[in-house]
Nucleic acid binder design. Structure first.
Length: 431
RNA sequence: GGAGAGGUGGCCGAGUGGUCGAAGGCAACGGUUUGCUAAACCGUCGUAGGUUAACGCCUACCGAGGGUUCGAAUCCCUCCCUCUCCGCCA
């Protein structure tokens, strides 16, 4: 019998539903709690009954075996009872499958429980700013948006990309392509060499089970690009691939924490964001992102979240980009997250901070779905905690760099740390 | 895509239609012995669900799903995956 797959622990609901619901707050509004409770009870009733009958049947079968060996004739009484039990078991089992399926469907729809330090709120207005780093760059001229800058420098080509693939795609060209590549390499080197992450290059296509494990499915299928012929999905973030590296594994305690970094393209349908950020690199169907993922013991995950955030901030600080950090409120967090920090970079042309990284602790939410456990030295296996953060989204970093370091003549200075990755080039200018 | 082989516990590796949840070995853990290490010896040593205050007990699982049978890891079917060879290809 399959175990009940869940994202929040069914036992927690069974034993302290009130507390679970209270902590979910607004996030638990849509859940049909009565049905969950009912299905759980039904399932347990059926399972208990089936197991009792199976036990009885097993005993009888053993007796038949002994009699056969002794050469005794068949006992019709026993045979009849065995048959009856089989029918009853079959009948009850037929009820278990749909019960479990419905229960799992309901449980998979329940978002994660926010951590107690998460501010309560319904939208971004309740997010809490933690800190700012740097200052708004002082320009003696009015800053050009990255789209105009990129096109006049002939490093970004949105028109030709649209011709071949539609809107929300781009062709990077010349120093633009090189800048993108330089950023990827700089971030990967920083995280692997200074911050202790192991680089991986994972699959960009993932199956249904993988997407369910990290929480994209079943609820957010409409946000994903899907390949029907093979039932595979293009990853919306490397988080999916990396977290699934250890799906259905029991890790040794000494192996934790595990830290991975990957640069991958990310593919998002952006359904429902029509009209939002239609121009430029901000919101693309395909973009590169360097992603950090950690697997930790439960008691260490919140320290790890702070560490992850620090690693992400280091990237922005070394690039010299002005940013701020906010703790997301309960209503603004993603489905799977227990706590999230957003890192927002200053975009001079728009004059606003825009998200460039999101760092989350999923606690055991993904681990439970993906069945990722570890074995403590003393006791029973436990679910690990998973975390991830963008370190950083490359396209948006390009935007920030172009706009922040632009010069009045339309050229763009290359940040010091990137120069080695740009072959010593110190600015991008018109040719 | 074509042909063949195979999928058993952390690993290796037996296995027969009926006390097989599964021999044996390795690894791991605990202990005895030991100046230390090693060796040797003894013991423990899968996952999940149900039940119990707890010790424990019960059930399921030998790639997945069906079928045959009183009974299946063992026989049959379908699917998935891995490996080898051929073809194709970056």
């Amino acid at each position: 019998m399959k175990c009940a797959l869940s994202m929040i622990d069914i036992r927690a609901i069974r034993e302290s539903e009130d507390e679970v619901r209270q902590r979910l707050g607004d996030r638990g509004q849509e859940v049909n709690w009565d049905r969950v409770r009912e299905l759980d009870a039904t399932r347990r009733d059926l399972v208990t009954r089936v197991e009792e009958r199976r036990h009885r049947r097993k005993t009888l079968l053993g007796e038949i075996g002994i009699q056969k060996r002794a050469g005794s004739p068949d006992n019709p009484e026993i045979l009849r009872e065995v048959e009856e039990l089989a029918d009853q078991i079959k009948h009850d089992e037929a009820g278990i499958t749909p019960t479990e399926d419905e229960l799992n469907d309901l449980l998979l729809q329940i978002p994660n429980i926010p951590h107690e330090t998460v501010p309560v709120g319904v939208d971004e207005t309740s997010n809490i700013e933690c800190r700012r780093w740097g200052t708004v760059p002082e320009l003696t001229f009015s800053p050009e948006p990255h789209v105009e800058l990129g096109e006049s420098l002939d490093i970004l080509d949105f028109k030709r990309a649209a011709r071949m693939a539609g809107s929300r795609f781009v062709v990077y060209k010349g120093d633009g392509a090189r800048l993108e590549r330089a950023l990827i390499n700089f971030m990967l080197d920083l995280h692997t060499q200074q911050h202790g992450y192991t680089e991986v290059i994972p699959p960009y296509l993932v199956n249904r089970a993988g997407m369910t494990g990290t929480g994209q499915l079943p609820k957010f299928e409409h946000d994903l690009f899907h390949i029907p012929s093979d039932d595979l999905f293009l990853i919306p973030t490397a988080e999916v691939s990396i977290t699934n590296i250890h799906r259905e594994e029991i890790l040794g305690e000494s192996a934790l924490p595990l830290r991975y970094v990957a640069n991958t393209p990310c593919f998002r349908r952006e359904a429902g964001s029509y009209g939002k950020d239609t121009r430029g690199l901000i919101r693309q169907h395909q973009f590169n992102k360097v992603e950090l993922v950690s697997f930790t013991k439960p008691e260490e995950s919140y320290d790890e979240l702070e560490r992850l955030l620090t690693d992400v901030e280091t990237v922005l600080q070394q690039l010299g980009l002005h940013y701020r950090v906010a703790t997301l409120c309960s209503g603004d967090m993603g489905f799977a997250a227990a706590k999230t920090y957003d890192v927002e970079v200053w975009m001079p042309a728009q004059g606003v901070f825009r998200e460039i990284s999101s760092c989350s602790n999923f606690e055991a939410f993904q681990a439970r779905r993906a069945r990722i456990k570890f074995r403590p030295a003393d006791g029973k296996t436990e679910f690990v905690h998973t975390l991830n953060g963008s370190g950083l989204a490359i396209g948006r970093t390009v935007v920030a760099i172009l706009e922040t370091f632009q010069q009045e003549d339309g050229s763009v200075l290359i940040p010091e740390v990137l120069k080695p990755y740009m072959g010593g080039l110190d600015k991008i200018e018109k040719h």
